[in-house]
Simulated scan of single mutants.
Amino acid sequence: MQNVTIVICNYNYGRFLAKAIDSALEQDYPATQVLVIDDGSTDGSREIIESYGGRVKALYKQNGGQVSAYNDAVNMLETEFVILLDSDDLLYGHAVSNVMRVFESGNFVKVQFRLDVIDPAGKPSGTYVPHSAAPSDCGSPLRQGWLYPSPPASGNAYRTSALKKIFPVPEADINRYGADFYAIYGVALLGAVATIPESLGAYRVHRTENSGIDFANSESNDKAPKALTKRWAILRQMARARLGIELPLSFHDFSLEKAHFCSAVYQAPFTKRWRWVSRQSHSYFRSIVGNPFWSYKKKIGTLALSSLCLLPFSALSDFAVRYIANPLARRRF
């Protein structure tokens, strides 16, 4: 039986931290170790971690951001397999066992799985992420600039030897967060990715303002495009320097394009919606029509919903935007 480490990266999430640690310690896979990286919390998180005594290994560091925490975590890893769990998320008790069965069935660099979406109080939303499955060969479309469907950070298990070829990631003021971006997409350049088509954990969503068009914890719709663009540029530099892989200058990602779509047409006047579709929507529709991971049915459905923003009825247009942008908004209909 091979050892696995669950790394929990935490910053001021003391109100959720114990549940995350408990979910890691309660795994039914005996060879599971737990490492907590506390990134300079000031909310009492340290006392919570220390209450577990020798059941967990811990690193208390000065605040440096998520990239810094991931760098330290990967550097400390002594097991060949790892799950990087956010401290506000949860793993179900059979997660590691299921992941390891897949790792043992093939030479995968990453195994990903669905996460049920829960609200800040832990109440299930009735939906999960991601909604599209990734192919085993994610590297080929990635080399063409297509970001493949992946769960958030907590829904990914990695082969440590692959992660160590990607990390450490440069730590800069503009690159403090989004460390999972480099793990998720960098590792896929090194080998096959497997997908488990069931939920093995829970992803906690905190931000649901703007009537439900936001579906992210770290960045709003106006900040996400800029952040992703910077991360892609850094990943390109790393891939060239460390792996000898040349990635394209730009990338394609529906999540990015729908952020532009939401910002442009949600609660916008009829004329503004038409103007955006006629002049600025090329990349958005390309991310749908050319998407190598989507079925024809999903493409047609998304195009049909998107076209509702061209109707003069603002309520119908806003409904379509909410439905496309945020799975949490769908449960009300």
Rank of each mutant, 00 (worst) to 15 (best):
G186Y: 01
A18R: 13
V187D: 07
G186M: 02
A121L: 12
D137Y: 10
D180V: 03
Q33Y: 11
P151G: 03
G244P: 03
L163E: 08
P225Y: 00
L228M: 00
E50W: 10
Q66L: 10
K165Q: 15
C262A: 15
A241R: 08
L235G: 00
E198F: 05
I48S: 10
K164T: 07
N156Y: 07
V109L: 06
Y296Q: 14
Q2G: 04
A172K: 13
L59Y: 15
S281I: 06
A133V: 02
G155E: 09
P124D: 10
G126P: 11
P30G: 08
S287W: 03
E104P: 05
G44T: 13
D253S: 05
S317W: 05
S306N: 07
S306F: 02
A329L: 06
D89S: 08
L77V: 12
P248L: 03
F251N: 01
I83S: 11
Y60R: 12
A69Q: 11
V7P: 01
R279E: 13
L316A: 10
S263W: 00
I196Q: 13
A31Y: 09
Q33W: 07
G201Q: 10
F81C: 06
K164V: 04
V321R: 05
G191F: 10
R231T: 00
D28M: 08
G139K: 11
S278P: 04
E198C: 06
T208L: 07
S281V: 04
